[in-house]
Design a protein around this nucleic acid. Sequence first.
DNA 1: TCTGGGGTCCTAGGACCC
DNA 2: TCTGGGGTCCTAGGACCC
Length: 430
Amino acid sequence: MFEASDKPIALIDCNNFYVSCERLFDTSLHGIPVIILSNNDGCAVARSEEARALGIKMGAPAFKMRDFMERHGVKALSSNYTLYGDLSRRVVDVLHGYSPRLDPYSIDETFVDLSGFGDRMEAHAARMRQAVRTQVGIPTCVGIAPTKTLAKLANHAAKKNPIFGGVCNLMNPQVRDYVMDRIPIGEIWGVGPATEAKLIAQGVKTAAALRDLPMALSRKIGTVVLERLVAELRGIACIDFEDVPPQRKGMAVTRSSGTPMTTFDVLAQAVTAHATRAAEKLRQHGLVAGTLTVFFHTNPHKPDRPQHSASRSVRLRPMSNHTFDLVDAAVSAARRGWRGDPSGNGCGYTKAGVILDDLLPEADRPAMLFEPARPRDARLTDALDAINDRFGKKTMVLAREGFAGEWRLRADHRSPRYTTRISELPIVKL
DNA sequence: TCTGGGGTCCTAGGACCC
DNA sequence: TCTGGGGTCCTAGGACCC
């Protein structure tokens, strides 16, 4: 019924991507421990090898390790997604020269179809790696295997074990067995903490042991998801190679606020800003949305304080990507979820967001039997986008959003947007 | 005595990923 | 004082229908 695949898939993954991006423009960051902080400078989302060696964990809250970082000379930077996104695009541009079929998976990883290269696939992968290194400046590792899950595993091995020289090829069953015997299940793509605990309780500890788990048992432990994963480990491809990106299902703009939001007015400012940004993103992608959800909640890390969370959805009819439609819907949804004492003071919400669902290409938007008497004018959003594109984000905003930005986040240590802002270009001194 | 069964759709919540 | 943001997929359970 299912056949083991013999088509090689490569996964090329950038090493410590965010840190590597920063190091491209600031050589003083080489050889020292560096971490990149999440939005709001909250916790570590990327670490250099040196930071890893110090034991700094992914997701570690920054304020708890301030002393530790000072003692060990750890440099912390705010994240600069504009820069990372641009460099990511450049990496994919280079990869296009190495295979006709690419499946970009995340900001720092791309699956590459290597079928047709035969015995030369390893050498080809090494050249591809070198090209990214010299043309963009980012170090990478490559894993090759017959399924995506095994390619992830191969990539992991290439990163961990210098013996592979940056390219680990698991097309050979003997090499594959050797590696799988040594990889703990927690490192496998798709095995999170919950599944890991269940498997260990069953005595399953390595990738090889999971591969050999009977299918029926794997389904019992982790539904079809785990069953599929076991098949992938056996070399049976269950996760498609997607060289044309599928239609996206949803889109979200959510932010923590620098200070807790205690009045409806401030919450409405934040929600207005998020809905405005969500509308921009829709238009950039040429989409319209059919459902809008607003949520907000208090700080879950402070269980001793009063907690409240709310989520309200509205249908957008007609489906829309117009800033005014989305802001109207979002603010009225927020009002329905708002809970405050009689004087209007709320709980102190620390996070709010706008989520859009039922996305459709603008051209496929269904016509309404009764269109609104005065449809929103697209020329207005065109002008808005043109101005903000030319003069920078948030040059023009709705008054409702305000400029005070009591809810706005911190990013005290962000590096310049070297490659996407003329005013922030690096300066070369001769 | 005995009170249907099968199907669809929607939503909330869990798990996982980077 | 201070703990990210943006996604996907799956399941269970309720509402509803005939």
